[in-house]
């Protein structure tokens, strides 16, 4: 059976928020080392991968591998009903058709139990090859969210250019154009590692959706390499990460 306790429901809320705009249903695979989720969006342009290792949980036990088919909108409703500082324990039997969520207030004066019906999802898993990225940029997640929002006002496409001098985001549309440049800072809030310069074009709508994960982390890592999908990674405390992959736009 599975038993996993998050110290704060707020973290689970943030994780669900980071997933639910991009995928509606997905399988959460639980093993003794932690929880994993991998799903493509409906149009198969992007992929989200979540990894939560046992270290982050207040309590974690998983005797046998169990896959939980979740409807994320339903999970969001349940999680929303709890207070952010409640502890939450997820429990599922070995061949579960439901997931039990038990919320417990700080002083244990209030407990709330919910049973969520699980879905039988036939989900493919994709193999993500190890990639040596040509450019790796780390910046405050709030800065990235702001740039994605500002860019999407101008165009559907966002061009990302990365050189040793910095990273540039550009959008060009009917209204005009926008260019935002960031350079490596001595303060260390922006770091740019470049093996070779790269310029790629991406759908801004997806980049914007990825920034739903902003509350999970102060930092975001953006990795680019020729002819492979963009990787946008948000670390999640001691648990692990949420990663978003987005296929680049190619010339027609």
């Amino acid at each position: 059976m599975l038993e996993a306790r998050f110290g704060e429901t707020l973290l689970l809320k943030k994780i669900v928020d980071a997933l639910k705009e991009i995928i509606s249903q997905s399988t959460l695979d639980c093993t003794e080392t932690g929880m994993q989720l991998q799903s493509m969006d409906n149009s198969h342009v992007s992929l989200v991968a979540l990894s939560l290792q046992t270290e982050g949980f207040e309590k974690y036990r998983c005797d046998r591998n169990v896959s939980l088919g979740l409807d994320l909108k339903s999970l969001a409703k349940v999680v929303k009903s709890a207070s952010g500082d409640d502890a939450v324990t997820l429990t599922a039997a070995d061949k579960a058709d439901k997931l039990l969520l038990s919320f417990e207030s700080d002083n244990k004066s209030r407990t709330a139990d919910y049973e969520l019906k699980l879905l039988n999802l036939d989900q493919d898993h994709l193999g993500i090859p190890e990639t040596n990225y040509a450019c790796i940029v780390q910046m405050p997640s709030s800065e990235f969210a702001r740039i994605c929002r500002d860019m999407s006002m101008f165009s559907e496409s966002v061009v990302i250019s990365c050189t040793k001098q910095g990273i540039k985001f550009s959008a060009n549309g009917d209204m005009g154009s926008a260019n935002i440049k960031l350079s490596d800072t001595s303060k260390g809030d922006i770091t740019i590692d470049v093996d070779e310069p790269i310029t790629q074009s991406f759908a801004g709508r997806y980049l914007n959706t990825f920034t739903r994960a902003t509350p999970l982390s102060d930092r975001v890592k953006i990795c680019l390499a020729p002819d492979v999908p963009l990787l946008v990674e948000y670390p999640i405390e001691d648990y692990g990460y949420i990663r978003y992959y987005l296929a680049p736009k190619v010339d027609e």
């Binding site: 493509m40 198969h44 342009v45 992007s46 992929l47 493919d124 898993h125 994709l126 193999g127 993500i128 090859p129 759908a203 492979v228 999908p229 992959y245 987005l246 296929a247 680049p248 736009k249 190619v250 010339d251 027609e252």
Partner: peptide, 12 residues
């Protein structure tokens, strides 16, 4: 043109 992610990552 937007490529599918499955053209980069293959099914296991």
């Amino acid at each position: 043109m937007q490529q599918s992610i499955t053209s980069y990552f293959k099914q296991k």
